Every structure is written in C-alpha cells, then in structure tokens.
Lab assay of single mutants.
Amino acid sequence: SAVVMEEGSPGEVPVLVEPPGLEDVEAALGMDRRTDAYSRSSSVSSQEEKSLHAEELVGRGIPIERVVSSEGGRPSVDLSFQPSQPLSKSSSSPELQTLQDILGDPGDKADVGRLSPEVKARSQSGTLDGESAAWSASGEDSRGQPEGPLPSSSPRSPSGLRPRGYTISDSAPSRRGKRVERDALKSRATASNAEKVPGINPSFVFLQLYHSPFFGDESNKPILLPNESQSFERSVQLLDQIPSYDTHKIAVLYVGEGQSNSELAILSNEHGSYRYTEFLTGLGRLIELKDCQPDKVYLGGLDVCGEDGQFTYCWHDDIMQAVFHIATLMPTKDVDKHRCDKKRHLGNDFVSIVYNDSGEDFKLGTIKGQFNFVHVIVTPLDYECNLVSLQCRKDMEGLVDTSVAKIVSDRNLPFVARQMALHANMASQVHHSRSNPTDIYPSKWIARLRHIKRLRQRICEEAAYSNPSLPLVHPPSHSKAPAQTPAEPTPGYEVGQRKRLISSVEDFTEFV
C-alpha cells in the first residue's frame, strides 16, 4: 500500500504489510482489554486508547508507543517513533504512522508483537499521559499493580500540603484535648505513684524565703500560729474566702420596643432579638451553673441549684474572672410580681450592659438600685453597626469618660462592650471603697496581704499580753509611738528610695 506524505515531511518511507502472525497476537491482546472507555466527539468514531511506554525494544532499544483501536470491530496495532508526526486519522481507513528506516525489517515488528510479559508489566506500571491515566485505574490494570491496600497518609489540604495544625504542634487546635488526655493517663497511674504529687513543697518555699535578706529584721520574721485558738483558725479560714484573682460581676439587660421607661417590662423579658443573642455568645463562655464549683469559678452570688437559672456566661484571663448576670437567662416566676429574684442580683451590680433595642433613649435610673454606678448603652444600628456610649452617676464623672461614643461592628461589639464594662467596674470598686478611707481597694491579692498582716499583728499583741517580758514586734495601731529626735535631713532622693524599699516589703498600697 502507498502512503501520501504530508508537506514538509521527509522522503517516502516504505511501509510494510503486517504479517498475519502479528495480527493474531494483537487480536488476542485486544480481546482481554476493556472496550468501555469514554466516548469521543461525534466527528471521530468511538475508540479506546491506552498509551504504553516501553523502555527498550528487543534487539533495537527504541521507545515506541502502542495504540489499540477497535475500529470496525477489528483491533489494530500502531507502532510509531515518538519524534515523528502521525498522519491524519479517518473512520474509513486504518491508522497509518511513519516509521524510521531502522524499523524497515519486518522481523523487528514480529519481535515487538512478542514482547515478554516482563516488558508489558513494566510498561503498564509506568506513568501514563492524559486520558490513558484514568483508564489505567480500571480493573483491567489491577493485575499489573501490587496486591494489598496502599499505606494511609496524613490529611492533605486542597493545595496538596499538610495542614498547619499537623506541622506545628504548639498551634494545633487540639492541644488542650491532648492535655486532658495526659491528665487522664496520670489519673490511671499505679498505686505506688499515687503518693507522688507534682509541684513545689510549701515548706521548701518557706525555707528559701526565711533565709532571704527580706527577713533580716525582727519585724519581718515569720511567727508560728497558735493551734489552740479558734479565733485565729477562723481568720485563716476567712483568708480562703478572698480569692487571689480579681472578680467582676456585670449585669446584662435587654430593652425591647416600648420598654425604655418600664423597669418591670425590662426585667420580665425572657429572650431578645437575634443580634442580641449573637452578642451574648461573644461576651464569654456559656457555663452550666450546676456543674460549677464556687471555689474555682466566680459566680457573683448565683445559685447553683437552679434558683437563678441553669446557664450563664463568664469570662476570665490570667488575673481576673468576670460573670454576667443576664436577665433573660434568669427564670421569670409568676409568684414574683416585682421580679425581686432578678433584681437582687442586677440591682447590686456596679455596672450594667444595656442592649437598647427600643429605638428610644434609655435613662440612668430606670433600673432603681443603690449600686448602679455605670451603664454601657448598646444601640443597634443599620448595616451591622452599633452605637456604644457610657452613662454614669455624677459622683463617678471624674473616673469615667462619658463624652466619647463609639461606632462598632457586630463582630467586635462583644469585645468592646466587655472591656468598657470591666474598666468601669474597676473604677466603681475604687469609688465605692472611698467610703472607708482606711481600706482603699487596690486588688484582691493586696486584700489578702492586708488580712495576713492584721492576723500577724493580733498574734503579736496576744503574745505580748500573755508574756509581758516579750517586746511587741508591731505596736498596736491605737498606741502612739514614742517621740523621736529629728534626724539629720537627708537628700530627698535617698528618703524616697528608703521609703520605697520599706513599702515594698510591708505593703503595696502607695504604689497603687
């Protein structure tokens, strides 16, 4: 048969007729292969192709491409040299491709048809291009793949890379869960390890502090508590009631339409708007009261037996805890006409967050109470924005700035309102402590230090009264110190430094 060459192609190359033996071998191979691939376009007849790359030819070592076609129900084999250009295909004639002069020997084609199974398996396991790669995943090629499931790999992101949580363990979102698992493993320790309690022994800490320079003076030496005195035992138990972190309780009120001037209507609300609910979820963490331990979680007086509701929101960081007394989460009882059960919590909070959804101005004093010092007013606006402002009593104007209003988005509203309420509550605590000038409020841990110092002074006084020969370590507060001759004046800087060093040991009130 003659071949018409394309323009620009090399000279004529004689194409030899395939021997009958080659056709029989390739026909047997075509019957084993699956003929249901995917359909081509209507211009080209339905056909199945599979590209198999052999590394070497037997005796020649030339890479070839073998295409199996099922045109007219008769499979045909096409061998081509890759750099050459194939002729145009037609549905009426068999596929013809040019070969190099080196394939002119018909014996070479017979060798190609009689490829060993080793070469076929190696060509099938190679990388296939384009559409033949999808075909190689079918059941027909499963014989050339190794048996057994593939090893499982770690989760992959859409980009093909490992997620960040699997790369950096410290930033993994499941870090707290692993800590819980470690605690569970520790709890399952053997009885021999049960006595080993991690941490620092208080006796060891005391020993280090006792021999430090801070205890060089007799006034700073630790003293032993009497065991037989019940009054001192009660004082030590009272110390446990003062937490070592700051605590805040903040009221949250929802004002519906037409309720801006009605205290009873505001306290009777059992739910609010959708934006109000989203605002609550951002204030803190939802907790169930019956599962809380009052000595570990500050509840601000809420009952854990269901008297004040089942849930509330709280927030904490390293040095403070805040609980929100939310009116809509507290039960509304029919027998309580004046809502006294709610007001006994909300009316005693220094700061209230008022979500004013009424469309009218909310005035300070609508919720009557002796300790309502500051109101954080949240007014929802259009386009997911809110107006946040402050209202306070006249005696609080020096501590709280009420002249600045803020426009905040719904997303950042819980954070801004919480921070403003916490700052206002700190100012309210300082303002409330002014009624007792001898006990200015600095912080909870300073209050613990003052309680310890008062307890020490009482013990020293009782020891001096029981044994008059012992001198008083600290003179009583009601006694007057003996007159001392004025010492020589020293520079102001040295006096300030000495006073600062003494105050650092005794108390921190002056620095606050």
Rank of each mutant, 00 (worst) to 15 (best):
V255R: 00
R450C: 06
R458K: 13
D395H: 09
W445E: 15
K406Y: 06
L422I: 09
G398V: 08
A405R: 11
N386E: 00
N386H: 11
N261R: 12
Q237R: 06
D217C: 11
V323E: 14
N261W: 03
G309W: 08
K333W: 13
L413S: 04
M426R: 01
I407L: 08
Q419L: 12
H338D: 15
G309V: 12
F232R: 06
D357G: 02
E218H: 09
L346V: 13
H451T: 14
V255K: 01
N436P: 05
S503Y: 05
L289Q: 15
C392I: 06
M396A: 05
L381T: 03
I377D: 03
Y465Q: 10
C305K: 11
H316P: 05
A417C: 09
M426D: 01
H271R: 05
R500E: 15
L253E: 01
N467K: 10
C392T: 08
D240F: 03
R339I: 12
Q293N: 15
H478R: 09
N348H: 15
A421F: 00
K444D: 15
G301S: 12
D334A: 15
L299F: 08
R285I: 07
P226Y: 07
G492I: 12
F362V: 05
G256V: 00
N436W: 05
S352P: 01
S469R: 08
L286G: 07
F373T: 08
S479C: 08
W315K: 02
N412V: 05
L289C: 11
L267G: 04
S389C: 12
L302F: 11
Y254P: 00
D318C: 09
E218Y: 09
P222T: 09
G300F: 03
A481D: 12
T366A: 06
V376W: 01
Y355E: 00
H325G: 03
N436Y: 07
K221V: 15
Q497W: 08
P489M: 14
A464G: 08
R450N: 14
D401M: 04
V297K: 14
I502C: 13
Q391D: 09
S262R: 05
E257G: 04
E270N: 07
E494V: 09
E263A: 05
D336A: 10
D341R: 15
M320G: 06
E263Q: 04
M330V: 05
L413M: 05
D336V: 06
R418T: 10
V430I: 14
E270C: 06
L267T: 04
S504F: 07
I326M: 03
P482Q: 14
C392Q: 03
L387I: 09
A464V: 10
G309A: 14
A483E: 13
D382T: 04
P226F: 10
Y493W: 13
K394C: 13
V430D: 02
A483K: 08
A327K: 04
T366E: 04
I377G: 01
S260C: 09
S244F: 12
